[in-house]
Design a protein around this nucleic acid. Structure first.
Length: 320
DNA sequence: CAGCAGGATCACG
DNA sequence: CGTGATCCTGCTG
């Protein structure tokens, strides 16, 4: 379905490689989250398995905190696969190693691939909910496309690129070749193209295996909470709760101080406001206005200041 | 200075 | 009407 839109099929695909500058970084990345996703056993992976892992990491924190090297590479002409494949870094084609190692490596690669796949789906899912857009780019309206672009700008710290794709819906976007992307943005066209590809692949993957088949054991219980993408206005308190329920991704901008009591702290007010702005299509959103909205909840008994009032600390009156 | 409290006004569904 | 967004004044650590 989503793979089959005209124009996309045979265009050269340029994967986005994210490689750690030094080995410590990947460990830091694995260790960083409160709720560790990748199995620790992966730490023992041979270096090769990690260099060139096609990592569609929608994790803003990883992007922010770790100096991952982001570089675009032209894929070898005969890369039949699209995204979500653990690809070898260019130049490092198959190690001519011993059989045993080869097998182990293959196994590890499989593991990594599964892990990466589920991470991608999760990240796409998260973004969908935060932006309130459908997972499949083909379903996007012009507004959705703009939201996605804003989001991507935000994730990858791009300058404003959304203006270059005005009046385009998801189908238009998907029908563009990589060259056409690059025409719009010389610097970031291929990156946007690659990222769009991730989304399309994720959508295709979702089709292949429905969500039931890959139940994850972490904090995704709310997944069906806001299932109805066709725009139901989200409340600020719901949004904050969503962020809080994704510590893996957002603990650096908002986190629980005491989950049982519903006390949370906004660590990065500007970022939270920005995310809220993206979600609500309010580019002028800032913490001043966001906090005013939070204060409206005082009267309604949804959020209050904790007994010992502290800066940027609030409390859900009715905890999770 | 950034955050906090809360009034006023406006837009939107 | 409810919910926010926006703007504003005054206060606080």
């Amino acid at each position: 379905m989503s793979m089959g839109s005209p124009g996309c099929e045979h265009t050269a695909y340029s994967p986005l490689y994210i490689s750690p500058p030094h080995s410590d970084a990947r460990i830091a990345w694995l260790d960083e989250a409160d709720d560790i996703k990748p199995p620790r056993s992966l730490l023992g992976l041979p270096e090769l398995s990690w260099t060139g892992v096609y990592l569609p990491c929608n994790n803003i924190l990883a992007m922010e905190e770790n100096p991952w090297v982001l570089r675009m590479t032209e894929s070898p002409a005969a890369t039949p696969s699209r995204t979500l494949e653990v690809s070898q870094a260019p130049g490092q084609t198959q190690t001519p190693s011993y059989e045993m190692e080869g097998q182990v490596e293959e196994h590890c690669l499989e593991q990594v691939q599964t892990m990466v796949e589920s991470e991608v789906l999760k990240d796409v899912d998260t973004a969908c909910k935060l932006l309130n857009i459908a997972p499949d780019p083909l379903d996007w309206s012009c507004v959705h496309v703009q939201k996605w672009l804003l989001w991507t700008e935000h994730l990858y710290r791009l300058p404003q690129v959304s203006t270059l794709f005005q009046e385009m819906n998801g189908k238009d976007l998907c029908s563009m070749t990589e060259a056409e992307f690059r025409q719009r943005s010389l610097q970031f066209g291929d990156m946007l193209y690659a990222n769009l590809d991730i989304w399309r692949s994720a959508a295709a993957m979702k089709e292949r295996c429905p969500p039931e088949d890959r139940k994850s054991a972490d904090d995704d219980s709310w997944s069906d909470l806001i299932r109805n993408y066709p725009s139901q206005p989200i409340h600020l308190w719901q949004f904050l709760r969503e962020l809080l329920l994704k510590p893996h991704t957002y603990s650096r901008c908002i986190r629980w101080l005491n989950k049982e009591k519903g006390i949370f702290k906004i660590e990065d007010s500007a970022l939270v406001a920005r995310l809220w702005g993206i979600r609500k299509n309010r580019p002028a959103m800032n913490y001043d206005k966001l906090s005013r909205s939070i204060r409206q909840y005082y009267k309604k008994g949804i959020i209050r200041k904790p007994d010992v009032s502290r800066r940027l600390v609030y409390q859900f009156v009715k905890p999770v």
